[in-house]
Simulated assay, not measured.
Amino acid sequence: MANYCEVCGKKTATGFNVSHSHLKTKRTWKPNIQRVRVLVDGQVKRMNVCTRCLRSHKVNRDI
């Protein structure tokens, strides 16, 4: 599954785990991406959309 939102462009972020002794190891934060059916220009399309866009009604799911 793609790790980016086709609506807002949110994608995987990278950074560090930082321990108490301040040792750093690489880690990632992945967005919560759902594959949903949406109505785009009168046609039903499947899109990868983050849950933030679904919750704020940035896509039309009235199918």
Rank of each mutant, 00 (worst) to 15 (best):
M1H: 12
A2Y: 07
A2H: 08
N3Q: 03
Y4D: 01
Y4H: 13
Y4C: 02
C5E: 09
C5I: 08
C5S: 10
E6G: 05
V7L: 03
V7M: 06
V7N: 12
V7E: 09
V7G: 07
C8V: 00
G9P: 02
G9C: 04
G9N: 05
K10Y: 05
K10M: 05
K10Q: 04
K11A: 12
K11F: 10
T12Q: 08
T12Y: 00
A13N: 14
T14L: 01
T14K: 10
G15L: 05
F16M: 08
F16Y: 13
F16A: 10
F16D: 12
F16H: 06
F16E: 13
N17C: 06
V18W: 08
V18E: 12
V18L: 09
S19M: 02
S19P: 01
H20T: 02
H20A: 09
S21G: 11
S21F: 05
S21D: 14
H22V: 07
H22L: 13
L23Y: 02
L23G: 02
K24I: 02
T25P: 08
T25V: 01
T25L: 06
T25F: 07
T25I: 01
K26T: 14
K26R: 15
K26G: 15
K26S: 15
R27L: 09
W29L: 04
W29I: 00
W29N: 03
W29M: 06
K30M: 00
P31D: 03
P31Q: 00
N32H: 13
N32V: 09
I33Q: 02
I33C: 03
I33H: 00
I33K: 01
Q34N: 07
Q34D: 03
R35I: 14
V36C: 03
V36K: 07
R37N: 11
R37H: 04
V38H: 00
V38W: 00
L39Y: 00
L39I: 13
V40G: 05
V40A: 07
D41E: 15
D41W: 10
G42N: 08
G42F: 11
G42Y: 05
G42A: 14
Q43T: 04
Q43M: 11
V44S: 09
K45P: 13
R46M: 11
R46H: 12
M47N: 01
N48D: 15
N48H: 13
V49I: 14
V49P: 02
V49H: 01
C50A: 01
T51K: 04
T51G: 04
T51I: 11
R52W: 07
C53A: 01
L54S: 01
L54A: 02
R55A: 15
S56K: 12
S56I: 04
S56P: 03
H57A: 14
H57I: 10
H57K: 10
K58G: 14
V59Q: 06
N60T: 04
N60H: 07
N60Q: 14
N60M: 06
N60R: 10
R61Q: 13
R61E: 13
R61G: 00
D62I: 14
D62Q: 14
D62C: 09
D62S: 15
I63Q: 13
I63G: 14
I63T: 15
I63S: 12
